[in-house]
Amino acid sequence: MGNSGVGMLLGDVSVTALWMWFIGAFILGGAILYGVLRAGRLRRSEREQLDRNTEAAQRRDDPQKRAGR
């Protein structure tokens, strides 16, 4: 009579596994949230450098393309 609730339905090992799933999902969700919040935050100088590099790569790949906007 020690088991109750989910433990009564699934057994002790399954309850532990279920908690591990919840903890793992929480940690994975936190890591994804951190990545989403961190992504796309470039300083102005980093953004300008990225734009210059992109334009240079486009000119190198297709010299017929007009440079600039």
Rank of each mutant, 00 (worst) to 15 (best):
V15R: 05
A25R: 01
N3A: 05
E48K: 10
R59H: 13
R38S: 10
R69K: 13
S14A: 15
Q49L: 10
A67Q: 14
I27M: 02
K65D: 06
E46T: 03
P63V: 04
E48D: 14
N3S: 10
G29F: 06
G11E: 08
G35Y: 01
L50S: 12
F22D: 06
L18W: 13
T16P: 01
Q58E: 14
K65W: 07
A39W: 15
G24K: 02
N53M: 07
K65Y: 05
G5L: 02
Q64V: 02
V15Q: 06
N3G: 01
L9A: 13
E55D: 15
R44H: 10
A31Y: 14
V15E: 05
D51M: 08
G68K: 07
I27D: 02
I23C: 00
V15H: 07
W21C: 10
T54V: 11
A56V: 00
E46I: 01
E46K: 03
G2C: 05
R41H: 15
G24I: 01
G24W: 03
W21Q: 10
G35S: 04
R41W: 07
A39Y: 14
M1E: 05
R44N: 13
E46P: 03
K65R: 15
P63S: 07
N3I: 02
G2F: 12
P63T: 06
L33K: 09
F26V: 08
R38D: 10
A39L: 08
G29I: 04
L37W: 03
L42N: 11
S14I: 00
D12V: 04
I27S: 02
A57V: 03
R52I: 01
Q58V: 09
A25D: 03
L10D: 05
I32A: 06
R59D: 13
G35D: 01
L9R: 15
Q58H: 09
F26K: 01
A17K: 15
D51C: 03
R41L: 02
L18G: 12
D51I: 03
G40D: 00
T54W: 08
A17L: 15
L42I: 00
R52N: 08
G5W: 05
R59N: 15
Q58I: 06
T16N: 13
D61P: 02
L50W: 07
R43D: 06
R60Y: 13
V36C: 04
F22G: 05
D51T: 03
A39V: 11
V36Y: 07
R69L: 12
A31P: 01
L37Q: 05
G29D: 11
L28T: 12
D51L: 05
S45R: 13
R43S: 15
I32W: 04
V6P: 05
R66A: 09
G11P: 12
W19D: 09
I32D: 01
A25C: 08
E48W: 02
S45P: 00
R38M: 07
R44C: 03
Q49G: 10
D61W: 12
D51N: 09
G40I: 00
L10M: 12
S45T: 09
S45N: 07
R69D: 12
F26A: 10
I32R: 02
K65F: 04
L9F: 11
R47T: 02
Q64H: 11
D61E: 13
T16L: 11
